[in-house]
């Protein structure tokens, strides 16, 4: 676990906002608590460029009630996974793209846009993914209040 402790220490020293917010549930896994988007961007850039976390496995979007949380699962060649979380208020969810850091992130970010209604700033133009083109506006299926019946309701 020394390796994971070292990562934790390095991140905590570098970023004040991550203090005591990093959990190590088991070998090769690190989870952080959700942080604000500006702080998060600094952390992910540092992790990607300085700490060799250069594989973005995926982005998971979560509806946590008050806020929308996105978990960025970063992986390193030695198998260690760093799961950085960012959060944004649910009323006005705005996030910034990280496709400049990870070119493969575009699909995962489009998923957040379609499924959770996040506004992704700086996302390159393109076809939507994964919902169909005639999907009713303002319906975001992965939000907790969304039910299947809402699809049938007349707008």
């Amino acid at each position: 676990m020394a390796n994971e402790e070292a990562i934790k220490k390095e991140l905590e020293e570098k970023f004040d906002f991550l203090k005591d917010k990093i959990i190590i549930p088991r070998e090769r896994r690190l989870f952080t608590e959700p942080v604000e988007i500006e702080d998060f961007l600094k952390a992910i850039e540092y992790a990607a460029s300085k700490m060799d976390f250069d594989i973005l496995t995926t982005i998971t979007g979560l509806d946590e009630g008050e806020s929308i949380v996105a978990i960025y699962h970063l992986a390193r060649k030695d198998g260690t996974m760093l799961n950085l979380k960012s959060k944004t208020p649910k009323e006005n969810p705005v996030m910034k793209t990280i496709s400049n850091l990870f070119n493969g992130a575009v699909f995962y970010e489009r998923e957040l846009v379609d499924m959770l209604g996040v506004q992704m700033e700086g996302l390159p133009e393109g076809k939507r993914y994964p919902l169909p083109d005639d999907w009713p506006e303002g319906q975001y299926p992965l939000r907790k209040e969304w039910k299947r019946e809402m699809l049938d309701a007349k707008p």
Partner: peptide, 24 residues
């Protein structure tokens, strides 16, 4: 690596990664 390819696709481009070994 930049586009995040995985599996045999990546391994055919000399990317030496395999979860079975890296994260058993």
């Amino acid at each position: 690596t930049r586009l995040g390819a995985v599996g045999p696709t990546a391994r055919a481009s000399k990317v030496d990664q395999d979860v079975r070994r890296d994260d058993p």
